[in-house]
């Protein structure tokens, strides 16, 4: 049996050396976490290993992926949104209906942006363009969703007594948590806002650099990069606001009582049930 030409390519050996260097750096982080008793080794190491396997699989499959018909890319993006919501909801474990909230937030934030930019011609209606750009937007929406859930959970847990003290004098639930919802939105948008603020000064995105090196007009490359950043910004903002609004509502019972956040390990089935 002969190996496919991609696997025989000598550049892979160079790639492996680079992977080894990156892994060594990650190992330093894990080592520091262990030495400082942060107990994050499992989560960080798991995420690192998973990322490597997943991106290799995607690299191997991307040729096949780009040959699927256009309508299938819609299904692919929908599957990406569902998986992103499944992963992201873990950041809000214990927050009522975290999966449903994540699915709604990420789906809304990314679909509005993808649809608008498709209509504006900023994303070409081809699988080759739609899947990677759509995936990038979904991934950023997921990141914002995770940060919003994580912060909201912390805000409620740390301020439960204060929120209940307000409920106890007749403050409606939405008003009692509005400050904490705002904090969650603000915290979740920090990475996006900082990236926007430093765009071109500290943060010189790879896509723009690649386009310029590939011979594109540098001004157009910059314009297009700004469009990409704008999409990430909009998807993050829409996701964060949707998610925070929904968790702020689901945190209360129908009788306006603040729910207890009980951690659980939902199964796919229970997550699907929560959608009803």
């Amino acid at each position: 049996m002969t190996l496919p030409p991609e696997v025989q390519d000598p550049v892979l050996r160079k790639g492996l050396a680079q992977v080894a260097a990156a892994t060594a750096l990650a190992a330093v982080v894990l080592g520091l976490s262990y030495a400082r008793d942060l107990e994050l080794e499992r989560e960080l190491g798991g995420a690192f290993a998973r990322g490597f396997v997943q991106v290799l699989a995607m690299g191997a499959l991307i040729g096949v992926l780009f040959s699927v018909p256009l309508f299938a890319s819609g299904l692919l993006l929908a599957a990406m949104v569902a998986y992103a919501a499944w992963e992201s909801r873990k950041r809000g474990d214990g927050v009522p209906r975290a999966f449903r909230v994540s699915l709604t937030g990420i789906a809304l934030g990314s679909s509005v942006v993808i649809a608008t930019m498709l209509a504006a011609g900023a994303i070409e209606p081809t699988v080759r363009n739609l899947v990677p750009v759509g995936g990038m937007i979904i991934a950023n929406a997921m990141k914002t969703n995770s940060l919003a859930l994580d912060r909201f959970k912390g805000e409620i847990e740390n301020n439960r007594a204060e929120i209940e003290a307000l409920l106890a004098v007749g403050v409606p639930p939405r008003a009692a948590v509005s400050e904490h919802v705002t904090q969650s939105v603000r915290a979740s948008l920090i990475p996006v806002v900082d990236a926007m603020r430093t765009l071109g000064l500290v943060y010189i995105p790879g896509m723009m650099a690649g386009m310029i090196l590939g011979g594109a007009n540098p001004i157009y490359a910059a314009q297009y990069q700004f469009v990409i950043m704008g999409m990430i910004f909009a998807a993050g903002g829409l996701t964060s606001m949707t998610t925070s609004l929904l968790v702020g509502r689901y945190a209360f019972t129908e009788a306006d009582q603040l729910r207890r956040f009980e951690e659980s390990s939902p199964t796919v089935l229970s997550a699907l049930r929560s959608l009803r």
Partner: peptide
């Protein structure tokens, strides 16, 4: 409920 709690307030 908020109306109830405005009438029956807790410290």
């Amino acid at each position: 409920p908020p109306e109830l709690r405005a009438r029956v307030g807790m410290v």
